[in-house]
Write a protein that binds this DNA or RNA. Structure first.
Lengths: 228, 228
DNA sequence: CCTTACGTCGTTGTATACAGGAATGCTATA
DNA sequence: TATAGCATTCCTGTATACAACGACGTAAGG
């Protein structure tokens, strides 16, 4: 990736450049733009090989997303304290539980097909490829969101998701967690299929509560190792 | 951005201009820009007496907010179906319940003071001024949000709030609803004070469930009256 | 040596110029 | 009269010019 240095693009080339917004967002996601890093328009413009105008648009959107914030030193990648990270998990636990309950109430047969497909795709993923694991997991949960047919829920979860996604892979790469997640996904799908509203909600909440607990451990170990 | 030089600005010569974003948002809120209305940059630029650049920034933010959307006819004020409105209420019921529960767990003495102040301000509002009623009500609930000390919750609720706020006043101007809301607010504050987590959550959920029910009636009556 | 004042530079906010693309309407011809 | 083709005209996306503001460094004076 990072194929810059293309100044003379042939008009025939089908090369589809991702939006500046997506590019910067991705750079934040994978840590190339670390939390606290200053975002200078001219520098980003040079990086993306566009003028400041699209950069400004992207930064505006990112700021609205809450991924980027204004400090006295200008625009920087937003830093999240451990408390904030846990708060995001708490919020997500509630919303994912609600999504599961609503999906159990509203799911269509097609939703079930999609859910099962996503679950089996996930089971087939190479467990050495953390990137693919995260993608498959996300795909499954997005299918569950979609099955709730509540767009406002989906919108909010989409927002939350990226705030956590910046801290990648980790909860799923814990030994045994992946297999456990597969089982839990299966249980959630079953509850959704059988229209067990309360059960679906409880299972989803437990599922994400475990993710939060693992995150808490990770945060704790980071504090341990950084404290000197 | 907005002017930081305050204090020495005579309010006469240069009227303190709110941000273009706030202006357009307000215009959407009070219906001057009705749902479905096309948003043409040049027209808005003329209206706000600025160039297209700040307009574009505002529209980008509004689009990110979900208040404005891109159709084949360009950018328009987003229209919400009755189903979507109810879905927003459903989501909000859950989040407000969570906020109340979290506030009961985390509230500080200062939070309580703010809450009681906001409640009494609300009790003192002239019930003929729907605008003031809505503002006081919103101020109270925002205090409750703040007492939860969970910024991600607050962020999401802030987003949701405006999607509903566009349909103004109505649920509180129902006969008797205002007085009932005052009582319910008092109960919520008491539960938060006494750290009754479950009670606070239940009360908040009931409070917003009633708002949703009233909204449902309003939507029903609109359908009745529009059906010819 | 410390402090202060001034100048330069960097960065952002705003305005404007320019080009591509889509929609609309007009005209000419069958 | 209907239709096809063309021109005009919006409108948006991008680039660039410009001004204001703040930060930083340097130099001068106490």
């Amino acid at each position: 990736m990072t194929s810059k240095t293309r100044g003379n693009e042939p008009p025939s080339a089908v090369e589809r450049r991702p939006s500046t917004y997506a590019r910067i967002k991705q750079a934040i996601a994978d840590g190339r733009l670390a939390p606290g890093a200053p975002l200078v328009e001219t520098a980003l413009a040079e990086w993306c090989e566009v003028s400041r105008t699209p950069i400004r648009e992207a930064l505006t959107r990112l700021e609205q997303d809450g991924l980027v914030t204004r400090t006295d030193r200008g625009l920087v990648v937003r830093e999240r304290s451990p408390e904030e990270v846990l708060d995001i998990y708490e919020t997500r636990i509630v919303l994912e539980g609600t999504v599961a309950r609503t999906a159990a109430a509203r799911r269509t047969p097609i939703d079930l097909i999609h859910l099962r497909h996503a679950a089996s795709e996930m089971a087939a993923v190479d467990t050495a490829d953390e990137e693919a694991m995260a993608a498959a997991n996300r795909a499954f949960h997005r299918r569950l969101w979609a099955a709730s047919h509540n767009e406002s829920l989906t919108d909010l979860l989409d927002r939350l998701d990226f705030h956590i996604a910046r801290y990648p892979r980790t909860t799923l790469s814990r030994p045994g967690r992946w297999e456990q997640a597969l089982v839990e996904h299966g249980e959630i799908v079953a509850a959704v299929e059988e229209r067990q509203l309360q059960l679906a909600e409880d299972l989803a909440r437990e599922h994400f509560t475990k993710a939060r607990d693992i995150r808490l451990e990770i945060l704790a170990s980071e504090i341990d190792s950084s404290a000197v």
